[in-house]
Computed example of a mutant assay.
Amino acid sequence: MQDMLIFGETIRAPDVRTLYDMKEVVADREWLKTAENFELYYMYRELARSEEEFRLMREFGLRYDITVIPPAKLGKEYVKTAGHYHPKAPKADVSYTEIYQVLEGSATYILQKAGRKGRILDVAVVEAEKGDIVFVPPDYGHITVNRSEKILKMANWVCRDFSSLYEPFKMFGGGAYFLLEDGFVRNSNYASVPKIRWIEPEDAKKFGLSPGEDVYRLIEDLQVLRFLKEPQAPVGIFEAAFC
């Protein structure tokens, strides 16, 4: 069991995701038949360094989380998050967005946009190292993979007014691609899956940050993160790679 996290004045126990919690999305079905349950990763939600900063987040409608993913293998597959989409924002034709930052280790982010009848319209992959920021655009689901031998620790900023949608990934047995020891493999449960596009992490300057600077510092000016609550508005400045 992962330890409690001390973050400023906040002490938080993790929400734990186990193998059996996400057995529907594991690629290696033969391995899964005999695999015993174990803890995969740990989510520390609603963190703030002080009660005042916590109040600011709540008033603005945002949430800051940290997720810890130790290295592991799910049979032939690298350890990953379960994968989820976001619901559409009120009065908008697009879903909520999210930003991530790698705090320790390295991460592979798999972003996918779904069409109708099991068709995937786009798949983008971002390889991120410590300090890198990754933007999840409107209408994209996403999975994070730790393919390294080190602990991955990442932070995210997201709107606090919705619950993530896990069912679309479960329905198709995982994301559009699995990341195995031999590389990326398409998930044949989808009707069609395009080739992977490789994109770069976001420029920290878009957020008023220096390269590698901690995104938690945005607590000082939460207006910069307004697009997380209103994805229909200024999202275009982040979306060039997805047009």
Score class of each variant (00 low, 15 high):
Thr18Met: 05
Tyr166Arg: 10
Gly236Asn: 15
Met4Arg: 13
Val126Pro: 11
Asp214Cys: 04
Asp3His: 02
Ala92Val: 06
Arg55Phe: 09
Glu59Ile: 08
Ala48Gly: 02
Lys170Ile: 03
Pro211Asn: 12
Glu167Gly: 12
Asn189Thr: 09
Lys153His: 00
Lys117Gln: 10
Val224Leu: 07
Gly173Cys: 02
Pro234Glu: 15
Trp198Gly: 01
Leu111Tyr: 11
Glu127Thr: 12
Val145Ser: 06
Glu36Lys: 14
Arg17Thr: 11
Asn189Glu: 10
Glu200Asn: 09
Leu121Thr: 03
Cys243Ala: 15
Asp214Asn: 14
Glu200Lys: 12
Tyr42Pro: 02
Pro138Val: 00
Glu59Met: 06
Leu222Ser: 07
Asp15Asn: 12
Val25Met: 07
Glu167Tyr: 14
Gly105Met: 06
His86Cys: 04
Trp31Ser: 09
Met1Asp: 14
Phe135Leu: 02
Ile69Asn: 05
Arg160Pro: 03
Glu98Lys: 00
Pro70Leu: 04
Ala27His: 14
Gln101Lys: 01
Val102Lys: 02
Phe178Tyr: 15
Gly131Glu: 07
Met171Thr: 15
Leu62Thr: 12
Trp157Asn: 02
Pro137Met: 03
Phe172Trp: 08
Val79Lys: 10
Thr34Trp: 08
Asn37Lys: 04
Phe7Pro: 13
Tyr42Glu: 01
Ala48Lys: 00
Lys91Gly: 00
Thr18Arg: 14
Leu121Asn: 04
Gly83Lys: 05
Phe54Ser: 15
Leu225Gly: 08
Tyr64Val: 00
Lys76Gln: 06
Gly174Trp: 12
Tyr41Val: 01
Gly118Ser: 05
Ser95Cys: 07
Asp214Tyr: 05
Ala241Gly: 09
Leu5Pro: 04
Lys205Glu: 13
Val26Asp: 04
His84Leu: 03
Arg119Asn: 11
Val126Glu: 13
Gln223Pro: 01
Val145Leu: 03
Tyr42Thr: 00
Asp122Phe: 05
Glu36Leu: 10
Gly208Ser: 08
Leu62Phe: 08
Trp31Asp: 10
Gly83Gln: 08
Glu30Pro: 05
Lys80Pro: 01
Arg197Cys: 00
Ala72Glu: 09
Asn146Pro: 09
Gly175Leu: 05
Gly208Leu: 04
Leu179Ala: 11
Glu213Arg: 10
Asp28Val: 09
Val235Ser: 15
Lys88Arg: 14
Ser163Trp: 12
Ile196Asp: 09
Lys170Asn: 11
Ser164Thr: 15
Lys23Thr: 06
Val145Trp: 03
Glu104Gly: 08
Gly208Pro: 06
Pro234Gly: 15
Met22His: 05
Leu179His: 14
Glu9Gln: 14
Leu165Ile: 15
Glu77Gly: 07
Phe227Arg: 12
Thr18Ser: 15
Ile11Val: 15
Glu77Ala: 07
Ile219Gly: 10
Ile69Asp: 03
Pro87Arg: 10
Arg12Pro: 05
Gln2Gly: 11
Asp221Pro: 09
Lys76Leu: 06
Arg63Trp: 00
Lys91Arg: 03
Gln112Tyr: 02
Gly115Ile: 04
Leu179Glu: 12
Asn37Ile: 03
Phe227Lys: 13
Asn156Lys: 00
Lys80Glu: 01
Pro70Arg: 08
Met43Gly: 03
Pro211Lys: 13
Leu32Val: 10
Tyr140Gln: 00
Tyr140Ile: 00
Val158Leu: 09
Arg58Pro: 08
Glu127Phe: 09
Ala92Tyr: 09
Ala27Pro: 07
Leu225Trp: 06
Val25Gln: 07
Asp28Ile: 05
Val136Phe: 00
Glu46Arg: 13
Glu239Asp: 14
Tyr41Gly: 01
Met43Val: 09
Val193Trp: 03
